[in-house]
Amino acid sequence: MGNDGFILIDRVSKEFAAHGKSAAVRVIENVSMTIARGEFIIFLGPSGCGKTTLMRIVGGLETASCGQVLLDGATVIGPDRKKGMVFQSYSSFPWLDVIDNIRFGMRFRDDISAAEKERLAQYYLELVGLRGFETYRVNRISGGMRQRLAIARTLAAGPDVLLMDEPFGALDAQNREFLQEQLVGIQKSEQKTVIFVTHDVEEAIFLADRIMLFSARPARVLQEIRVGDHIGTERPLAVKSTQAFFALRNSILDVTRKLALQTEKIMLQGGMSPA
């Protein structure tokens, strides 16, 4: 850990150009950070603050206006299978069944054999707990299962970094907690570098090695919280009801409440909707 610098976000700013009646909007303001290999990073901040945009820049799905992102020493210039993405909405393909959706993640890989692809498909199916649902159509399974499926497909592509954009945002509280727990388990066995965007403070603390707390738009890093220093690195579900967890949650909530009010003001003053 420390300054291994697997992902380097180097003085990134992003401005959406003016078009029509809306003026140019600066959504990210000179953000720099270093992320170590295997680290679980949370981008926490009010809705619409620009944290998703920053993650999309890391994924090559948006371009920075200033600055650059380095992944394993190479400048990010566009999307590829090294930067896997799990979206907020259900992104699995309804015309494919569960196992074919997972296979789709490897369809364009030429670094592994067909036999290996099949082995991996079965492995990830098992990993996300969808064994028995191989032949189910995507809209016959629950929302939580769909997000697990999206995680399996993304992992199957063999990414260096997993980018997750509020992946559990559309789920009910029980499902959400269940998936958080599963993700902790998956992370333990896969050891991926993860950037996970959320505005849910408890989710952030439960999952993160490190939380990057962003300001209201334009996003700047306000605070960097090494969660392990507060609640330890083991994350059983019970950690959510410890004193240390509450204390950390309350201190972060104090900051985010103020941020939410600020963001509301920015939104009311006009400008574009959050990207």
Binding site: R81, M85, S91, F108
Partner: peptide
């Protein structure tokens, strides 16, 4: 076609022509 579908394709390594054909 939802933007997410297209971006899923690009982030699993599909070229534009493959995104067109397979997504």
């Amino acid at each position: 076609v939802p933007r997410e579908y297209v971006e899923v394709g690009m982030t699993v390594g599909a070229r534009p022509s493959q995104v067109l054909r397979h997504i």
